[in-house]
Write a protein that binds this DNA or RNA. Structure first.
Length: 672
DNA sequence: GTCATGCCTG
DNA sequence: CAGGCATGAC
């Protein structure tokens, strides 16, 4: 829409209509042109002031007018009031041509013959003023004539009249500006011509305005039609807005005094431009909506295809490798798992086709690699594999390895990147999940002790599985994968060792890995700490940081972990003292008669405390340390050193030197 | 003052 | 297991 109107069409009434009403009814796509329109520049302030500001650039002309007015029309109150009322601009103008003022005040103009062009200007100004001499009355009576029809113009008129009454300058102001640009554009035109031209142009402008409004209305109707066809909700949403917009149009029409008799034929060029813009807008909208639909369709189709593909892969893997893979892997490939995973994926993350796509290719790779590495992994893990005697096995349905990490399954790494909120859900579940003990660990074989129903575990495992793959983008090595209890990597790649510092710094650099960094300690961490106690009774904070790489350490977390070990020691020493006293009470004479075996009551008590699930093979070294500790207590008590308030400290000193190295397997964030 | 540790208590 | 408190080392 080309609203570039000729400058001479400017008129206060038309302009006020345009500038005040158009922006409210015009659609956004048209606003740009509106702002490009010269008229749009007058969106603020009164037309008079705007015109004045515009014409101020033509200082000479204004100065002429000012000179003339102050000399012939408002000679009485010329001077300081002029300066004060016309604002600093006029002051500047006066400063620019002081000679004129001087000449008017001191001597007749004839004394200083003006140049021809100045004479011509003066003549035109005189004509204008002469015309205005009659109109000032009407202008001064304007309050009763026009102001009842146009509120805005009335305001401006009132303002003008006020100023007029004070200085009788408003008409001149308007004519100043008008004349200013008229002089620039039509140096030789007469006043009558000017007036006639102005009226005609005013009419034209009004016609154009009206035609534009009509087109706007049509366009809005078109908009409504388009949206109502494709978006039933849109019309509901837009109904109120459309009504209000139409109301605005109606008001603006009224406010602009565009009466039906003023309707002339629409300007052809304007109409053509409007139509073009309308077509452009329509095609743009159609295109936009088409691309949106295409986007949605693509998303849906891609998601569906990926889901189907994954399902097929899983089905094939589970059916073809059923006899080859380990039971643990079968667990991970069970249909329940698939269903659970798929369902959760769909229900919790319907928009993750991209993530799924990214992870899809990796999924089969990881699955294969996990199968290939199974034997190696278990070989590596043999040092910690618990082959519990049948006596101590609480439940041994299958005589397989007892270590929880022996069932660490790479299938859990099937890449699927859950969104952030899901990770938070996972985090919450893992922190306050249904299992507060280790028997509920995911991927735990059925032979493992479980304190909760499998149905619960299944969903829990499904959640855990999804959390596992969060870090899959970083490959095996960087899988913190912990999410607390979800440790399933462990032995997947035992040859890859990463210090906790490296891991944590990596995690800090990587926002995705940060999702797996625990803000707090979980029951899994507690379990792990208890198992670590079998190796170290006095772990340093560095050791803790090394062996809890998935924990975001701060002062509080470190203190908590230290406190845990302090409590472990407390229980440990209490048991030691208790059994030492018991031995003494039982009449044991020789400390060598006191031994600690896996069958002893002391060990069972300790094992019950630190290895409640009994799924961890307590190292022999711990038995030795326990025996030494018991001897220390026996000796101390026998020597009645317990009368000393700090008699245990000597024992602590001895025991703290008996810490052994913690297996590297514990360093993996998701050892358990 | 801070930190680690131990003891006591709930 | 955690909180509070006391103690001792730095």
């Amino acid at each position: 829409m080309n609203l570039s109107l000729p400058d001479q069409t400017m008129h206060s009434s038309s302009e006020s209509c345009l500038e005040d009403d158009k922006p409210e009814v015009i659609l956004p796509c048209f606003r740009r042109n509106m702002h490009e329109d010269p008229l749009a520049a007058y969106s603020n302030g009164s037309i008079i002031s705007q015109l004045l500001r515009k014409t101020i650039h033509n200082k000479r002309a204004i100065d002429d007018n000012h000179f003339y007015l102050s000399n012939s029309v408002a000679a009485a109150d010329s001077g300081q009031e002029d300066e004060s009322s016309v604002s600093s601009k006029d002051s500047t103008i006066e400063a620019v041509s002081p000679s004129d003022h001087v000449s008017t005040g001191v001597s007749p103009e004839g004394d200083h013959p003006l140049p021809d062009h100045l004479k011509a200007k003066r003549a035109r100004v005189e004509n204008i003023i002469r015309v205005m001499a009659g109109s000032p009355n009407s202008r001064q009576h304007c309050d009763g004539e026009r102001c009842d029809t146009d509120a805005r113009e009335m305001r401006e008129a009132r303002e003008s009249c006020r100023e007029n009454k004070r200085k009788q300058r408003l008409p001149q102001h308007q004519e100043h500006s008008t004349m200013g640009w008229q002089m620039n554009r039509k140096p030789g035109s007469s006043c009558n011509d000017n007036c006639n031209t102005k009226e005609e142009e005013c009419h034209k402008l009004k016609e154009q305005l009206h035609s534009m409004q009509r087109l706007l209305r049509q366009l809005q109707e078109k908009f409504l039609q388009v949206y109502s066809q494709e978006d039933p909700e849109f019309i509901v949403r837009e109904a109120a807005g459309a009504v209000s917009e139409h109301d605005i149009i109606g008001n603006s029409t009224d406010a602009c005094y565009i009466s039906p008799e003023e309707h002339l034929e629409t300007n052809n060029s304007t109409a053509t431009a409007n139509c073009n813009d309308r077509i452009k807008a329509d095609s743009y909208l159609t295109h936009q909506r088409e691309s949106q639909n295409l986007q949605e369709t693509l998303k849906q189709e891609l998601s569906k295809a990926v889901n189907d593909c994954i399902d097929r892969v899983f089905k094939k893997v589970s059916s073809s490798t059923d006899m080859d893979i380990s039971p643990q892997q079968r667990v991970c490939s069970t249909p329940e798992m698939q269903i659970s995973l798929g369902a959760d994926r769909k229900s919790l993350a319907p928009d993750h086709s991209q993530a799924e796509e990214m992870s899809k290719s990796r999924s089969s790779e990881l699955c294969e690699s996990s199968e290939a590495q199974t034997s190696q992994d278990q070989t590596e893990a043999l040092s910690l594999v618990v082959r519990k005697p049948p006596v101590t096995q609480v439940s041994s349905v299958t005589p397989t390895v007892k270590r929880p990490y022996a069932v660490h399954q790479t299938p859990f790494q099937f890449s699927y990147t859950p969104p952030l909120h899901e990770s938070h859900i996972l985090e919450h579940l893992l922190k306050y999940g249904p299992h507060s003990n280790f028997g509920a660990l995911p991927c735990m074989p059925p032979s493992m002790d479980r304190t909760s129903p499998d149905s619960v575990d299944l969903s829990w495992d499904a959640v855990a599985m999804r959390s596992k793959v969060t870090s899959s983008h970083f490959g095996h090595h960087h899988r913190p994968s912990s999410m607390g209890a979800v440790g399933v990597d462990g032995l997947c790649l035992p040859h890859v060792k990463m210090e906790s510092g490296e891991l944590q710094s990596l995690a800090e650099r990587n926002p995705y890995m940060s999702l797996n960094i625990q803000e707090g300690l979980t029951p899994s961490h507690l379990k792990k700490a208890k198992l670590m106690f079998f190796y170290t009774r006095y772990p340093s904070s560095n050791v803790l940081k090394t062996f809890f790489p998935d924990v975001k350490f701060n002062r509080c977390i470190t203190s908590q972990l230290i406190k845990w070990f302090s409590n472990f020691r407390e229980f440990y020493y209490i048991q030691m003292e208790k059994f030492a006293r018991q031995a003494i009470a039982e009449g044991v004479r020789d400390v060598k008669d006191i031994t600690v075996s896996r069958d002893s009551e002391l060990f069972r008590a300790l094992n019950m405390h630190y290895n409640k699930a009994n799924d961890f093979h307590v190292p022999d070294r711990f038995l030795e340390v326990a025996e030494i500790t018991l001897h220390e207590f026996y000796n101390a008590i026998s020597a009645t050193k317990d009368s000393d308030s700090s008699w245990k400290k000597a024992i602590y000193k001895v025991i703290c030197k008996l810490d052994s190295e913690i297996p590297e397997e514990f360093k993996t964030s998701s050892y358990l």
